[in-house]
Computed example of a mutant assay.
Amino acid sequence: MKLYGDIQSGNCYKIKLLTALLDLNHEWVHVDILNHETQTQAFLAKNPNGKIPLLELDDGRCLWESNAILNYLAKDSALLPSDPFALAKVQQWQFFEQYSHEPFIAVARFINKYLGLPENRRADYESKQEGGLKALKVMEQQLQQTPFLIGEQLTTADIDLSTPYA
């Protein structure tokens, strides 16, 4: 299988982390988003949404969106519960990541890390801080109760929210 991405991207990082934890053999294909490599005809044929990460299976089928890739790769492992309620809790945190965490933390990180915090984006960067701190507070409250987001064991929910901040 091939994984298309940029290791600096938080969404790609979590896929790379999962492949390491599960010791999954794969080919990493670097994609330069700042040079619009996700907008080429070849890439758009694999992912019409034009974003990374992208998983291409050996049979040519493609899967995009980091949480879908995480859960697909973790199927039948201890990182993705088979119990319906525990699985729903994982998905709950994954939706939280997409709607309460990513719009603030990941966007601010992109402005800072990828763009170098240019002055014309500083107000946008600053506007993300309150929402980011709120998301981190929700996570911290849960982690004061359990060692991992859904209980006693690491799951794809924890990996999903493990975006690097540097």
Rank of each mutant, 00 (worst) to 15 (best):
P118F: 03
H36T: 08
Y114F: 13
F95Q: 03
T19P: 12
Q142C: 03
Y13R: 06
A86C: 13
P84G: 11
L18P: 05
R61A: 15
L63F: 09
A106F: 04
H36D: 14
L63S: 10
I15W: 02
A42G: 12
G131M: 02
L149G: 02
I111Y: 00
V31E: 05
Q145T: 11
P147D: 00
W28I: 08
P103G: 00
V31G: 06
R121P: 04
L57E: 15
Q91R: 05
L21Q: 04
P81G: 09
D83R: 10
D158S: 09
T155C: 12
T19Y: 10
E152T: 11
E65Y: 03
Q41P: 15
W64M: 13
T38W: 05
E102C: 01
L80P: 14
I15T: 07
A108S: 02
T146H: 02
V31R: 03
I69T: 12
Q91L: 05
A86K: 13
N71L: 13
Q129T: 02
S162G: 08
D23M: 09
S9M: 01
I33G: 03
Q144L: 08
N47I: 03
A68Q: 13
D6Q: 00
A74S: 15
E140K: 07
N25Y: 07
P84T: 04
N25F: 05
